[in-house]
Amino acid sequence: MSIVISDKVLQTIQMSDTELLQEIAIMLFEQERFTLGQASNFALMNQLEFQRLLASRKISLHYDIAELREDVKSLSANDWR
Rank of each mutant, 00 (worst) to 15 (best):
L10V: 06
L10S: 06
L10A: 09
L10C: 09
L10N: 05
Q11P: 02
Q11A: 12
Q11V: 11
T12S: 14
T12P: 07
T12G: 08
T12H: 15
I13C: 08
I13G: 06
I13K: 10
I13V: 13
Q14K: 14
Q14E: 14
Q14P: 04
Q14C: 12
M15G: 03
M15S: 11
M15D: 05
S16Q: 10
S16V: 12
D17T: 09
D17A: 13
D17F: 10
D17V: 09
T18I: 08
E19I: 13
E19G: 07
L20E: 12
L20M: 14
L20W: 11
L20D: 07
L21K: 09
L21G: 02
L21P: 04
L21T: 04
L21I: 05
L21R: 07
L21E: 09
L21F: 01
Q22V: 09
Q22N: 12
Q22L: 10
E23F: 10
E23T: 11
I24Y: 09
I24F: 08
I24P: 06
I24V: 15
I24Q: 04
A25L: 02
A25S: 08
I26P: 03
I26L: 08
I26V: 14
I26C: 04
I26N: 05
I26E: 00
I26K: 05
I26D: 04
I26G: 02
M27T: 07
L28W: 10
L28G: 05
L28P: 05
F29A: 00
F29R: 04
F29V: 02
E30T: 13
E30C: 14
E30I: 14
Q31I: 03
Q31W: 06
E32H: 15
E32F: 03
E32Y: 10
R33P: 00
R33K: 14
R33V: 12
R33I: 12
R33C: 11
F34E: 06
F34R: 00
F34H: 02
F34V: 02
T35S: 08
L36D: 04
L36K: 02
G37D: 07
Q38L: 05
Q38C: 04
Q38R: 10
A39Y: 00
A39R: 01
A39E: 01
A39F: 02
A39G: 01
A39K: 00
A39Q: 00
S40V: 03
N41L: 10
N41V: 05
N41P: 06
N41T: 08
F42L: 00
F42G: 00
A43H: 01
A43I: 00
A43K: 00
A43V: 03
A43T: 01
L44G: 08
L44T: 08
L44N: 15
M45G: 09
M45C: 10
M45F: 12
M45T: 09
M45H: 11
N46G: 07
N46V: 11
N46S: 11
Q47T: 13
Q47A: 13
L48D: 15
L48C: 10
L48G: 13
L48N: 13
L48Q: 14
E49C: 07
E49S: 01
E49V: 04
E49N: 09
E49Y: 01
F50R: 05
